[in-house]
Amino acid sequence: MLFLSPLLLWFLAAASVPVAIHLINRRRHKTIQWAAMRFLLKATRESRGKKKLRHILILTCRTLALAALALAAARPVISGLTGWGGGSIDTVVLLLDRSASMEIRPGDGLESRRQIVLEKVRDVIGDLKPARLVLIDSAGGNPQEIPSPDVLAELSATAATDSGADFPAMLARAAEFLTEAQGRSEVWLVSDLQRASWRPDDERWHSARAALLALPQKPSLRVLSITGPTAANASVSLLSSRRTGGELLLDLEIQRSGEARGNSTIPLTTRINGGTTTDSLTVPGQSLRFQKRIPLPADTESGNGWVSIPADGNPRDNVAFFALVRRATSRAIATACFWGLPS
């Protein structure tokens, strides 16, 4: 049996807690002078059988429940009926979410969710040793065979993107691929479970399910989710931009992560046609919408630029790009061609 979070197996020690409490309680007894001893002795003799067995069973159940919780927290990867070396998998189809949210880091100084989950996948698949590993990433969408799980993190097909993910489409694509695959197969969905990526109301889930059920050998589906706490994050997005007279008006929005409270001062850097300026913004609460006016030199015809905030929990949402052009004047040119006219 393999575990995605083997460190959490240390919590198996918690299974001994009920036994420890039982033993401590037995030692914690209070002494009492007792008169009706004959009934006590008789009761003790009578309760030795069933009661003791029931007590042991309850204790065992508590111990097993805690052990099961610890095992579940360690996220076991079970193959085959029993999970103990029972199955040899021929094909693993890896559906990788490469959306921008996968670049969120669980904490300061840690790697992004995408990098963490790729490492786990590499370790687990390295242990499972399937015959084929096929990757369908959310940006490319086409199946590509991976020669070794060790190269997963180095592939451009597993690199960060700013795009979203479409799991119904990816699953349908996996089902399509598996029609040609032989032997036992598993489909691994690697994601941070963002609603925008999973689209639970999408009708295509039905067709994807039907396609998977129609396969001659039904694959097992495994969701490798990576969620949990994240490092503090702020994002900047451009809502609209327009040019009025000699100014460029940018409607911007800065959002802070859900746990953010109070005011926060964030430096906002603006770069346009090579010139850079930095302003300080005070963001009250979790979001701030504002309009930024950028004066343009009189002879500016076109250009581009970006606004950015400092790197934080998710480096993929710290920059917003924009372009400016002078509105083209519509001109109509009437032309007439005359063929066959004598010169």
Binding site: H29, K30, I32, Q33, W34, M37, L40
Partner: peptide, 15 residues
């Protein structure tokens, strides 16, 4: 909770 019962008459102890 568990108790250590001591007989008041003959001193028999039972936990």
């Amino acid at each position: 909770r568990p108790h250590r019962f001591v007989d008041l008459e003959d001193g028999t102890v039972l936990v």
